[in-house]
Design a protein around this nucleic acid. Sequence first.
DNA 1: CTCATCAGTTTGACTTTGCAACCGAGTAAG
DNA 2: CTTACTCGGTTGCAAAGTCAAACTGATGAG
Lengths: 168, 168
Amino acid sequence: MRDDLPGRPCSVAAALNLVGEKWALLAVREIAFGNKRFDAIARNTGAPRDRLAARLRALQAAGVVARRQYSEHPPRWEYELTEAGRDLRAVLRALRAWGDKWAVETPPAAFVHSCGHSDLDTALVCRHCGSEVDPGDLRLRVLAPGWTREGPVSGSRQPSDDTGHPAR
Amino acid sequence: MRDDLPGRPCSVAAALNLVGEKWALLAVREIAFGNKRFDAIARNTGAPRDRLAARLRALQAAGVVARRQYSEHPPRWEYELTEAGRDLRAVLRALRAWGDKWAVETPPAAFVHSCGHSDLDTALVCRHCGSEVDPGDLRLRVLAPGWTREGPVSGSRQPSDDTGHPAR
DNA sequence: CTCATCAGTTTGACTTTGCAACCGAGTAAG
DNA sequence: CTTACTCGGTTGCAAAGTCAAACTGATGAG
């Protein structure tokens, strides 16, 4: 949507630009739980109703949720996740795992995998070599022109420094 | 830290309470990249310096980053990730994957796994049964008393409704 | 002496948020 | 018919958060 984000060009920043506002991910959480109606989302997230209305509109514009009328005569709407919204469940899983470990004493909810074990415990596996991924085995490659891992190349101005003469 | 969060008791909400403020995760991203100094973080995230200072203090209080003096005489500090901060890289990976797919045209950065392939592609595998986890195979179990997947049990007041007589 | 670096803080304008009340369409009870 | 209630929001306003730019203060380089 917006490309004029400050700082390093980054998918994380771009993602947060769409779903990083307060209450946005919690609204997605509730819809993913199957609570699709405005009142239920407001009650279960605790978000102020006006903020929630604004967030749901933004999420709709970002293509994360869709608004659907499920009753004509008492005019009623519900929100559902688009494919992009369903993909956000991976982000919610990561946040839940981190929060279970570092932000709460005892987990207020848990996932059960169909294999039967009552507590989901997962490993991240590289599809190419089949081995579990250790964060230390990852090397970042910066593809954005004018940027390195350390920052912008030697103080050059990013926006439209196409004058040809060296910066500074 | 804070338990008086509004809405459903949830590790996702608790996690966002600690790292969900604007710029917090981008600061963690930069520190994870090895850019530990205040100026580098400010430049590479684009965050206003006052906000960044506030976020770094909050992250320090949350135990996500640590502030270390690396030079005495020109008094200089650097930030580094604690174990909790390093665990946040999983959240950043999930956000990056989502952003790569849904928030940008072409990824501005990519991870290379030590196995040699230039683009990281991972699968989530259940440690118990060894098979890849399909989000549809997950069932949520709500453990928090007084709450179900749908919301609080029949309109009962959450805080200290231990009177014994039914609500409403 | 002057300029630059680093790590912030201060200032003042602006934007977002939270809260409570309200609204309108429709349903339900008396 | 009147009153009350549900759903899905909107409105008004004060408080809180955010922004960009300038400033501070310690130090070191030329």
